[in-house]
Design a binder for these strands. Structure first.
Lengths: 353, 353
DNA sequence: CAACCCCATGTAATCGATTACATGCAACTT
DNA sequence: AAGTTGCATGTAATCGATTACATGGGGTTG
């Protein structure tokens, strides 16, 4: 079961067969390497006969151009870096899929950088992009990287096209793809208020997060629009994770004056919070209504099913990738794209009792 | 809000500053390019003074080696391809994180290929690896790719190191990292039986899937060990998704003779199924016990919380990456690694009433 | 003192594609 | 018929790093 020797056999059976090169194809098709290259890149500039011979030779040899050589010469990698704060977060996976499929269709590959809160990783990937290893990057982490901290002299970096997705990057002059977090949060707050809720708690994201700041403003907007006062005591700190939702729930259970509705700024927190309330014998939504944000897959099958704000995650990914590709290929792009959200009404919110 | 002109300004402000090359560093440090290269790759072969001058020059210029050039010459990319069937599946995200962090620490980057059931994508990535664009690959999709279908002649591919993760690949002579699906399924089945359940239903994965085949065998093992007969009527088809769990639940609700326990081979299905049962007025676990498999994040906060099989997902990813790196660096590796699973007992399973 | 070795370093070939420039031929113009 | 145009193609420079081989100087050994 625990055989060793894998590498030995690998060494034996692998005499490093040199892959087919453009020269081999050229020889076989009886043309020059330039013609082979042109037959692939600009077929219209090659005679039909030569092209046919080249294609036949390629089919016969299974030739695939060496990307390192191509990249070295043409200064293009056809690779895009996707920077995100936490790869294991449910919220990102569908966005990634939208990005991947769009990039794929345009012939680009995707390299993922999971920052994981590590400045070292961030510096590494900053160098990575500077080294020209990717043609462009999509930033989901809310800030640019490598603020000229290392080299003292003139860094002389190559500036590659960047796009910010979900988390807008304030001072940066790059396209932003996002939803209107403020408006969505306001809408949810007003929805709760319209059902008669007067004591509405708010479970926040990390204070430094731009999404949090927008949603918090939206929450206050909503209160104001509904003529409700803002009470700081009803703001509960969170960080978008299930665990922080659980913790927020525990805090609520212990209170004397409970809110009648809780607006969680992520579905993960809402699900964790509901769990805690239910365990403590409270009923959702009869005793407390709970609302979420994001509309992840599990929102619809939570018990009770979760009223939330739907984000078009796949489309967000697609839009960001599309904009980046436009940028890479020199087409004009929009500076800001805001996709529509939707208020999804399910069972976790009921009229105030 | 919808400004155009991004690309115009990009063209203006971007005179394609050429990045620092090894020559620039060499000139500045007053040594040859060979010495610069050696100072980085084999510092012990360079005099301390020269090394110091080189490092200083590098710091001053912010030099980063051009990866395309390096890769072209050395035939290494320091990139690993991760092939998976569905990037948006919750189950994979934590595995990916384990892979990414391990690769990162070893200086490798990660390229993700989401096959999405598309043979075209599969062929593309087969060519991709063949083109030497990555040094190795981790396969999470249960089979090798590109079975010599395209070129008629001798494909003459470069064989790169591969590792199979989670889904073992039968005929392939590559390292396998997985859990013992059969034993785990058997264990869960026996757990249910030990609580007095005699009518145990099984919600399957896709029939073609190797995980499914193993788990199904384990289910039968468990029944046999408990002295229970196998009844095909209690096998309900599924495909690991929430939706198929919902569908399976609808089927159950409609039955006259219901099982007293349901073993779902994924947590997603279990959660979807519980949701349907609850909506139909059945109680979990009082009327029907439900068990899952995987122990995803949401299992602990489902209502009721889900009894399931814990898979060490992050560790699986780390193990696969570690083995691949060993392979890439010529160290001997184990052919098969099986990580331990754990039976996690929560509230969705109760003794048979 | 001569012969040898080793170490640090430099010179230049090399990886495999793209592409600027050169060439030669055919077709068209006046 | 001479000149012009344009197309298909070939030749060779080029991208930037790695590395085999060459070189020269200092130290060791017989």
């Amino acid at each position: 079961m625990d055989d060793l020797g894998q590498s030995d056999s690998a060494e034996r059976e692998d005499p490093r067969i040199r892959a087919t090169r453009i020269q081999d194809v050229a020889k076989l098709a009886d043309v020059s390497t330039a013609t082979v290259s042109r037959a692939l890149a600009t077929p219209e500039r090659v005679s039909p006969e030569a092209r046919a011979r080249v294609l036949e030779a390629i089919a016969k040899t299974g030739y695939v151009p060496n990307p390192a050589a191509r990249s070295l010469r043409s200064q293009k990698t056809f690779m895009v870096l996707v920077v995100l704060p936490d790869l294991s977060n449910t919220f990102f996976s569908k966005i990634l899929r939208g990005i991947e499929e769009t990039l794929f269709d345009a012939g680009y590959g995707m390299i993922i950088s999971d920052l994981d809160g590590s400045p070292a990783k961030e510096a590494h990937f900053a160098a990575f992009t500077a080294a020209g290893r990717v043609d462009g990057a999509i930033l989901l982490n809310g800030h640019l990287f490598g603020q000229s901290r290392e080299g003292e002299g003139q860094p002389a970096r190559i500036a590659i096209p960047l796009v910010a997705l979900c988390e807008a990057i304030p001072g940066a002059d790059i396209p932003q793809i996002e939803i209107d977090n403020r408006a969505a949060a306001s809408r949810m707050t007003q929805h709760l208020a319209s059902l008669g809720h007067r004591r509405i708690a708010y479970v926040s994201g990390p204070a430094s997060n731009i999404l949090e700041r927008e949603r918090f403003l939206g929450f206050k907007d909503g209160l104001e629009a509904a003529g409700l006062p803002f009470d700081p005591a009803f703001v509960i700190p969170g960080d978008y994770t299930i665990e922080s939702g659980v913790a927020a729930g525990q805090g609520l259970v212990a209170r004397k004056t409970r809110p009648t509705a809780v607006f969680c700024t992520s579905d993960e927190m809402a699900i964790g919070l509901m769990r805690t309330l239910l365990s403590a014998g409270l009923r959702v939504p009869e005793d407390i209504s709970v609302a979420g944000f994001d509309d992840i897959e599990f929102a619809a099958v939570a018990e009770p099913s979760l009223t939330t704000i739907h984000q078009p995650r796949r489309e967000l990914g697609q839009a960001a990738a599309t904009v980046l590709i436009d940028l890479l290929q020199g087409r004009p792009t929009r500076k800001q794209i805001r996709l529509e959200t939707e208020l999804v009404i399910r069972d976790s919110v009921a009229p105030a009792g």
